Amino acid sequence: MPLGTLDRAPPPFFKQGPSALSKLMVCSALALFLMVADARFRITQPLRAAIAAVLYPAQWLAMRPVVALRSAGSYFADLGQAQASEATARRQLVEQAQRAVQVEQLTLENARLRDLLALRERSPVAGMAAEVLYDAADPYTRKVIIDKGLAQGVAAGSPVIDANGVLGQVTRVHPLVSEVTLVTDREQAIPVLNTRTGARGIAYGEPAPHGAGGLELRYMAANADVQSGDLLTTSGVDGVYPPGLPVARVDRVERRPDSAFARIACHPQASVEGARHVMVLQPLGAQQMPPRPAAPEDATPAQKRGARR
């Protein structure tokens, strides 16, 4: 190898250059110059804009997972809030519907009680309000149980009315409840008066196998003046029911040539199937009926004994 081709320069390890302190001072001065120049003249603004435009797609791709996670969290949070709001709205709707039903029921009960009190004002005897608890268990009778008994002063035989008319009669009294036999029971009979003609009669209960049943005006002559639509009220001659209480209205009149009596079917005025609030009246009794007239002084002993009877 020729000697002229040999590299006589020292290897890089042994090269001598600026010291580290000199390089630090030069770089610091250059950085300070660039910062001052950028702050005063904004010489690096175009470079920054170009770098931001080049790096924006990479930034956008890098942010997609973060944005997706945030969106998913927000979606589930909104979904939970929407479900909770829906549940609250449904509960409030049910409560409002229940309140509306209660208001409607209270309004209806108020109207019935007002009608009942108005009917009570026309009655000459005292009474007390009661509520129907349930129907009697015997399917062959027409009876209901009310929430008043001996403790409240209910007596056997007391008439029971609702807002429309006579409902029945108390037939059994217990300490806290009483049994009321309805006017449609086959064992029930009420002396009635035809308000159109003034004719008296007796209405008997006629229970139906399926339904509320009705009444039958018995022992009326075939040529009696009774028409459909006639109103029958209590006559008051039995000493139990006050006079003038609505009992029933005539439905149809059947006059058969082979019978001396007409068959007269009536439907009760009271709500025998749906009564809830009723009024228990005190029986008229002998003490509330007019006293028997005294016998004259010049009457014979037999006449006086008849008068006392």
Rank of each mutant, 00 (worst) to 15 (best):
L6C: 03
R196Q: 13
Q152G: 03
L284K: 02
G17R: 07
N164D: 14
A224K: 06
L245I: 15
Q59A: 12
Q105S: 14
T181A: 10
Y134R: 08
R42T: 10
R120D: 05
I161P: 01
M289F: 00
V160E: 04
T184Q: 03
R91T: 05
L61I: 12
M128K: 14
E104V: 01
R292L: 12
K143Q: 15
G229K: 09
G201P: 09
V144G: 00
A260T: 10
R172C: 02
P283A: 01
Y219M: 07
S28L: 13
V94H: 15
Q188G: 00
L6T: 11
V36G: 12
H277R: 07
R48I: 10
G205R: 06
D78M: 11
V250E: 06
P291L: 11
Q81M: 10
F41G: 09
V253A: 01
P296K: 13
I146W: 01
E95W: 07
Q102T: 06
R48L: 14
Q282E: 15
Q98R: 13
A265V: 12
S259D: 12
Q269K: 08
G165H: 06
R172G: 06
R64C: 00
G306Y: 08
M128A: 10
A68F: 04
G153K: 12
A270N: 04
F13K: 05
G127V: 09
P175R: 09
S22C: 03
L24Q: 11
V36M: 13
D230L: 02
R309E: 09
L69Y: 08
M1G: 15
A52Q: 11
Q98D: 05
D251G: 04
L106K: 07
G236M: 05
T44M: 07
A89F: 10
R276N: 03
G73S: 12
P11I: 09
V247Y: 01
K148E: 04
G201Y: 06
S235W: 02
T181N: 03
A126C: 02
E273R: 13
A126Q: 06
A199G: 10
F33I: 07
P2I: 01
V170M: 07
Q288L: 11
A62T: 08
R292K: 15
P291K: 11
F33S: 09
A84K: 08
Q16Y: 07
D135Y: 11
M1E: 08
Q105T: 12
A136G: 15
V247P: 04
G4D: 15
C266N: 11
R196E: 00
V253L: 09
A260E: 11
G80K: 13
P57K: 09
E109R: 13
S85E: 13
Q227Y: 12
V226E: 04
